[in-house]
Structure formats: structure tokens, C-alpha cells
């Protein structure tokens, strides 16, 4: 709004200094609970694996390379699932870098 004198910026800095604005959440604002976190991690792995397997099957059917792309994409899907779980627990501040 009032960009000419950088008021917003100074206000935000002051608010951050006083701790009025919560620092961007390390838990990404998601509710915790061990059961919920476990379920979320499971869903992440499952969905990435599903995408990998389906993509592999479709590519194989298209290119006629069964079963090689399926095997490769299965591994890629597992890797993506682990990556998703890693991102789930990685604080968002780290991700910004």
C-alpha cells in the first residue's frame, strides 16, 4: 500500500522483532499427533508409489518396453515417496534456502 516510505516493511520488521508475527512455522502449520503424522507419511509414500507405478505401466504400454520402465518408475516412485516424507518433516525455513 504505502510503498513510498517503506512503512509496511518497517512495520513488519518491528512486528517480527517484538514477536508479534509468528516466525514461519517449522511444522508448516499442520496439526501434530503421532498417529496423524504416521498416517500422513504413509499416504505420501503410497501416493508417490502409485503415481510411479501407474506412470511406468502407461509408458510401457505406450513404448512397448514392458517391464523395464515399470521397474525404473517403481524405484522412482519409492524415491519420490521418501522425498515426500522428508519434505513433510523438514522445517519450511530450510526449504526456503
Amino acid at each position: 500500500m504505502s510503498k513510498q516510505d517503506g512503512f509496511e516493511k518497517r512495520l513488519n520488521e518491528a512486528r517480527a522483532r517484538q514477536g508479534l508475527d509468528r516466525a514461519e512455522g517449522s511444522s508448516a502449520g499442520l496439526p501434530g499427533g503421532s498417529y496423524g503424522v504416521g498416517f500422513r507419511a504413509g499416504v505420501e509414500v503410497f501416493s508417490a508409489l502409485l503415481v510411479g507405478v501407474v506412470a511406468g505401466l502407461l509408458l510401457d504400454r505406450w513404448l512397448g518396453t514392458w517391464p523395464w520402465l515399470f521397474l525404473v518408475m517403481f524405484v522412482m516412485g519409492s524415491a519420490a515417496g521418501l522425498l515426500n516424507v522428508f519434505r513433510l518433516f523438514k522445517p519450511r525455513a530450510l526449504k526456503r534456502d
Binding site: 498416517f39 508417490a48 522412482m76 524415491a79
Partner: peptide, 24 residues
């Protein structure tokens, strides 16, 4: 390695989003 993994990870977003709600 990274690009397919990232693409699969990106494509898995709507899947995990929908499965989480529906499964619960």
C-alpha cells in the same frame, strides 16, 4: 534421477491430498 523423482513427487500431490481425506 532427480527430475523424474521430482516429477513423480509433484504428480503425487493431488493423489495424497485426495487419498488422505477420503481414507479418513
Amino acid at each position: 534421477i532427480i527430475i523424474p523423482v521430482e516429477i513423480v513427487s509433484y504428480l503425487s500431490r493431488p493423489i495424497s491430498l485426495s487419498i488422505r481425506l477420503f481414507a479418513n
